[in-house]
Design a protein around this nucleic acid. Sequence first.
DNA 1: AAAATAATTGACAACGTTGTCATAACATGC
DNA 2: GCATGTTATGACAACGTTGTCAATTATTTT
Lengths: 331, 331
Amino acid sequence: MSITIRDVAKKADCSIKTVSRVVNEESHVRPELRERVLAAIRETGYVPNISARRLVQKRSYVICLLLHAAGSFQSTLLSKVLEVGYEGNYDILVQTYYPIFSRSRKKVSDLIQQNRIDGLVTTPPCDSDPFLIDLINRSGLPHVHIAPLNPTGGTPYVSAEDFAGAYQMTERLIMLGHQRIGLLLGHRNQRPSLDRLFGYRAALEKHQIPINEQLLVDSENNFVGGSTATQILMNLNPPPTALFALSDESAAGALYRLNELGIPVPEKVALAAFGDLTISHQIWPGISAVKYPLEGIVEQAIQMLIALVEGTQPTSRQVILPTSIIMRGST
Amino acid sequence: MSITIRDVAKKADCSIKTVSRVVNEESHVRPELRERVLAAIRETGYVPNISARRLVQKRSYVICLLLHAAGSFQSTLLSKVLEVGYEGNYDILVQTYYPIFSRSRKKVSDLIQQNRIDGLVTTPPCDSDPFLIDLINRSGLPHVHIAPLNPTGGTPYVSAEDFAGAYQMTERLIMLGHQRIGLLLGHRNQRPSLDRLFGYRAALEKHQIPINEQLLVDSENNFVGGSTATQILMNLNPPPTALFALSDESAAGALYRLNELGIPVPEKVALAAFGDLTISHQIWPGISAVKYPLEGIVEQAIQMLIALVEGTQPTSRQVILPTSIIMRGST
DNA sequence: AAAATAATTGACAACGTTGTCATAACATGC
DNA sequence: GCATGTTATGACAACGTTGTCAATTATTTT
C-alpha cells in the first residue's frame, strides 16, 4: 500500500542503497543520478518509514519532556521546546511526572528501557526527585535540567542569574526610597529561592539597611501562597512599603490580597516580582518584574541535549543566563 | 548488547514465537511453558523493542495533539490529554500547527505518512484550516476535534453548549438590572462565537430588550482585542452598564482597560466572561464567568479517539457538554 | 600507457519483532 | 483403534530501512 524505498529505486532505476544515500544526504552519488532519484521521490511522494530507521539505528528521534504541573510557566516552556526540538528534527513526547506516584516512575522507566526516547529534559520540581534522577543516571540516557531547584550531581543544566536579578531589583526598590521591603520567598531549601534571598540581602547590606527577619516570609510559590504571605506581611506594624515576590504566581496572589485589603498599589505599597510571565502584564497595574529568561533557557537546554544525544561535545555543561529588569506601574 | 526475544527463547528453551505469544498474552501456550518463559523474562530483564513491533504492526501507540498557541487554555487542555492518554496506554506527541506555515503542514503530513501516529486531535483554530483537514481526511487517520470553530464535515468532535451558556449569563445580567450589555464577540464566522451571540440575542428578546447593534463589537479573542473593544464600547453615549466578553483573555483585556480608564468594576460597569480559565479568578475583582467544561471535553475527545483507533464503535460522534455559571465580584 | 588511487554503485545481511502456515501432539467421538 | 478435530509449537518470511563490503568506473599519478 505505502510507498517504500524500493518503489523509488525501481523508478529511478538504481539500487535502494543509492536512494538511501540521497535521502540521507550522504556523499558519493553522481549529481545526475541524485537528480533522477530526487525526481522519483517527488513523483512517488515517498517518505522514509521512521520505524524501520529507528529499528536499525537504535534511535528514536524523540525527546521526552517531563512536566509536573500545568501553568503559564509550563506552557511557555513547552512552546519553546517544541520550536527548538522541531528545528533539530526531534519529536517531543510530553510526559507528566508526579514524584509521589510510582506509576509515573514506571512509565519513565519503560520509556527509557524500550529505547523510545533519545533524551530527556526535566523541569522543576522533577529534578528534586532522587529516585527519578537515579533512574536516569543509571540508564545513561542523555538528560538536561531546566532551571533545577536542586542542581547537584553532574547533570548538565541551564538556569538564570537568580542572585543578580534579585540584587538588582532590590536595589531599584531601595533607589525608589523603600527601606522596609517584604520578601515573599519560596522554599529555603531550593536553590533559586535561596540565591534570590542572598541577592536581596546583599543589596540591603550594600546600602547599609539592616535585615529584618520579620520581613522574610516563607511561602509556596503560587497564588495562594502569595496571598497568605501578603496578609502576614501587611499585618506587621509598621507594614512594609514594598513587597518583592519571588515568583509570578505569588505576585498575582499578593496583588489580589492587596486589592481585597483596599491597599492601593503602588501608592501605599509597591510590588515587584521575579518571573514576568503573562499574568504580570495582564493585570492592573502591570507588575514590575525581574524578567526570567525562560525562552533562552529552554533554547540552550534543548540544544545542549541534542548535542549530547548526537555525541558532539556541548560547549559547556552548566549555563547561567542573565536576567533583566522591567519596571511597570506597580512600583 | 540489549536483550532480545531470542535470548529469552534460548533461556526458556523454546521458539521466539512462543515468547512472543506469552508477551502478548495470546492463547495456545501450555501453562507450564508459559511459566518458564515468564521466569526467563524476569531473569533476563527483557523488554520488547517497540520500534520492531511498530514496524511490523504499522502502529505507533502514539496520539498527536496539534496546538496553535501557548496559553492557559492550551495548558489545561494538554494536562488533561496527558492524563487520559496515559490511562489508555498512549504516548502523547505534541506538535505546534500554524496554518500559515507550509512547514508545519509538511510536518503533520510526514507524521501521518510515516505511521508515526495512530490518531490525531486538533484544537482551535487548527480545525479551520481546510488544507489540514483535507490532508487528514484523505489519509484516513482517526481524528477528533476539540471545541472546533468550524464543525463541518463528518469529523467527530466534542464541544460545549455555547448558546445555552451565553443565554444564561445574559439573563443573569438582565436580572441584575442591566439593559445595555456590551458584547465583546469574537469572529462572527466562527461557530462558537456565533452561537454565543445567538444566546445573547435570545436572552434579550425573551426579556423584550431591543438589540442595539452598536453594543456588539467584533474583536480578536485575546487580551489586546478585549482591551480595544472595551475602549470602543465605553466611548458610546450612553456607555453600556455591563460588558460580556466571549473569551477569558478578552475579559482580562477589558478589565485592564477599565482600570486604566478609572472605571470601577462592578460599581460603574459589570463584567462577565465566557471561559473561566485561571486568570478569571486570579485577578481582582474575580470575573463572573460561564464555566467552559474544558476538562470534560478533552476527556470525552481522547476516549472517542482511542475508540476510533482501536476500532471499537464510539458511542457517538458529536458530543456537546453543558456549561455552568460562576458569579464573582465583577457583577 | 600503466599503475595507483579515489569515487560511485549495488548485493546482501542485519535490526527485533509479529503474522502465516505447516506440523506435531493431544483429545474426542464412534 | 481409527478417523477427526483441536491445541500447542516452531520454521520462516516479512516489515522498510541502514551498514558493510565488494565490484565497478573515473581520475590522478608515475
